[in-house]
């Protein structure tokens, strides 16, 4: 299976509400995209994403997703240092999410 990864910046999602964000992610997953999401999701958004995914699982092409949030990465710099949080979300059909992280 070919692997496609979409990097989604916070700038892209900052005007989206939680539902829109989750629908955006699910549409990507349904198109067999792995989504690397800058800023991650809040726990409440993760719960909404689970609910939305469960409602949209069709038991053929979309079976849900795998999600991993690695520890935040700290950017270098004295005054501009900040923690960058990323969440990686992949369609369940990928046999191993670690493949997406390589």
């Amino acid at each position: 299976m070919d692997l496609y990864i979409d990097f989604v910046t916070e700038n892209t999602t900052k005007r989206m509400n939680s539902i829109e964000k989750c629908e955006f992610i699910i549409s990507k997953l349904k198109n067999k995209r792995v989504v690397v999401f800058e800023g991650g999701l809040r726990p409440e958004e993760e719960a909404i994403l689970i609910e939305e995914a469960m409602l949209q699982i069709d038991h053929s092409s979309f079976l849900g997703y795998k999600i991993i949030t690695p520890s935040p990465v700290r950017t270098p710099g004295l005054f501009s240092r900040k923690d960058i949080r990323m969440t990686v979300i992949a369609p369940q059909n990928y046999e191993s999410l670690s493949v997406a992280l390589v």
Partner: peptide, 8 residues
């Protein structure tokens, strides 16, 4: 159980 995927 809470899960992000359900694979039949």
């Amino acid at each position: 159980g809470i899960a992000t995927s359900v694979d039949y």
